[in-house]
Design a protein around this nucleic acid. Sequence first.
DNA 1: GCGTAATACATCGTATCACGAAGTATTAGA
DNA 2: TCTAATACTTCGTGATACGATGTATTACGC
Lengths: 105, 105
Amino acid sequence: MDIQLKRGLLDVCVLSAIKGEASYGYKIIKDLGHCIELSESTLYTILKRLELAGLLTVEAVEHGGRLRKYYRITAEGTARIAEFKREWREVMSIYQFIMKGDEAL
Amino acid sequence: MDIQLKRGLLDVCVLSAIKGEASYGYKIIKDLGHCIELSESTLYTILKRLELAGLLTVEAVEHGGRLRKYYRITAEGTARIAEFKREWREVMSIYQFIMKGDEAL
DNA sequence: GCGTAATACATCGTATCACGAAGTATTAGA
DNA sequence: TCTAATACTTCGTGATACGATGTATTACGC
């Protein structure tokens, strides 16, 4: 799918992927793979950005001799999802505009 | 609204604004203003990009002593809108994923 | 035992793109 | 006469998705 179209969705997708329970990079990619594909470099960039913004927290955990970073959503992160939900109404009205005059919406 | 969220919409919005009849920059901004705001620098950048991509054609017309560039959608431009329509199904399924587990969708 | 895939995270450079700032020019109205 | 509206252009910047590449360990097939 179009990269530009993904841009506004990715951050919130990642937040949504950890909103239930803490998760880690590799798992997030697998979980999201069903509906939206993203590369590792993209994900880790996003995770770092979201951490800096305070939307999630990180906790490194030893797992089978390997390091695993668990990401947990914060209250700000949850608020971001709620904000997205509000913005979505605007997005839909733009979609309506684009489709205006088109048969079979 | 969030810039990232706008990104995937802007090009198609502009195409949609000229899909009925040819229009020019200043008018497109006014027409789109109802549902999505964009600055002049943004619009003219988009118009040039869409022209280079063959999604629209330009025709300069003298109007009241001033130059006015009329933009007209091409078959490729119309196809782009149709493609967007198809992509939108994917976007909606991503939206469903984000909202999953949320009361009151 | 050995090679390969899977797991797991990180960094760098690049291309795309929306936008503010600033500029040019004309016309209409206060 | 000054300002606002009309109309288009260019430049620089910051944000960001991604491919390429690198590092390490574990698990599995042969």
